[in-house]
């Protein structure tokens, strides 16, 4: 190891320490503002200690919102994954088909453009009226939210196939079908993954909204119900759980992408 490496390492350690201190200060200020100074009543802003306590309690207790933390997580995951997978399964092939077949493009794109600008959250009341407040409505909402980014990105991905590559395939005597599977889809794969990532984010966010408005279980419901019970500690627990699961999703998808997308992402 040379001088430079040592210097680099020193710098890294220094900034890691700064980061740790910064986090400590963040929690420290939070703690002082709540537990020591009581700037806001507990039911509005709990102290970090209360949040941790609430988290531990919530692992086993069903009070006051009718399920343990894992119960809520399971309910949310069930809805989110059902809707998300359906959205991806329908959306990605549709996007590919729209980009590859001119007639489908011409016919479906205008319809798609018609519904695309409506934010998914605005679908919630309609879906509730159509499907009630069970799994169906929520899954349908998540479906819409996941579907749109999947289509857009798969479409853009296929469209960015370079004509040169298609010509090369043609000179090798590839049929149009083979060209789709050997040239166009591999080209589109990075963007398809981008779409899957974006839609997972939107799906997870939409889920919160859906559960807040129509549910009796799930993390969004937990956030909503505990507001009326003025249990801010449980709200924070739910928020952090949502954030954590969202992060796990992103990390997982990135790992999947690394595995599937060969040759790296291109600009």
């Amino acid at each position: 190891m040379n001088e430079y490496a040592i210097q680099k390492r020193k710098e890294r350690i220094k900034f890691t320490i700064v980061s740790v201190i910064s986090l400590c200060v963040f929690f420290g200020v939070w703690y002082v503002c709540t537990a020591v100074l009581h700037l806001k009543p507990d039911y509005v802003l709990p102290s970090p200690v209360q949040v941790v306590e609430a988290f531990i309690q919530k692992l086993t207790q069903t009070n006051p919102d009718g399920a343990t933390l894992f119960g809520h997580i399971a309910a949310s995951l069930q809805v989110a994954l059902t809707g998300y997978l359906l959205g991806a399964i329908v959306g990605v092939p549709l996007g590919i088909a729209m980009a590859w077949f001119r007639r489908i493009d011409l016919f479906v794109t205008p319809l798609f453009d018609l519904i695309r600008p409506v934010p998914t959250i605005a679908w919630i009341p309609l879906m509730i009226l159509w499907f009630g407040i069970g799994l169906g409505a929520k899954a349908a909402i998540i479906f819409v939210s996941a579907f749109v980014p999947c289509v857009i990105n798969a479409y853009a991905g296929i469209k960015q196939t370079k004509p040169v590559h298609l010509w090369v395939a043609q000179t090798f005597g590839a049929s149009r079908r083979e060209m789709l599977f050997t040239v166009a889809i591999p080209t589109a794969l990075p963007l398809i993954f981008t779409g899957l990532r974006i839609s997972l984010g939107t799906a997870w966010m939409t889920l919160c909204a859906a559960e807040m408005l129509a549910s009796n279980k799930g993390l969004g419901y937990m956030i909503q119900l505990n507001r009326s019970l003025a249990r801010a500690d449980l709200i924070v627990v739910a928020m952090l759980t949502i954030g954590l699961i969202g992060t796990i999703f992103t990390v997982g998808l990135n790992a999947l992408e690394k595995k599937f997308v060969k040759g790296g992402r291109r600009g």
């Binding site: 910064s22 802003l45 919160c208 969004g220 956030i223 739910a238 928020m239 954030g243 954590l244 969202g246």
Partner: peptide, 23 residues
């Protein structure tokens, strides 16, 4: 200084903040 705090709060969707902000 700011990145760890930002990364901590970033994954929480804005909608999940509703209850806390209203309280």
């Amino acid at each position: 200084i700011f990145k760890p705090i930002f990364e901590l709060l970033r994954p929480i969707p804005p909608i999940a903040w509703i209850s806390l902000v209203i309280l």
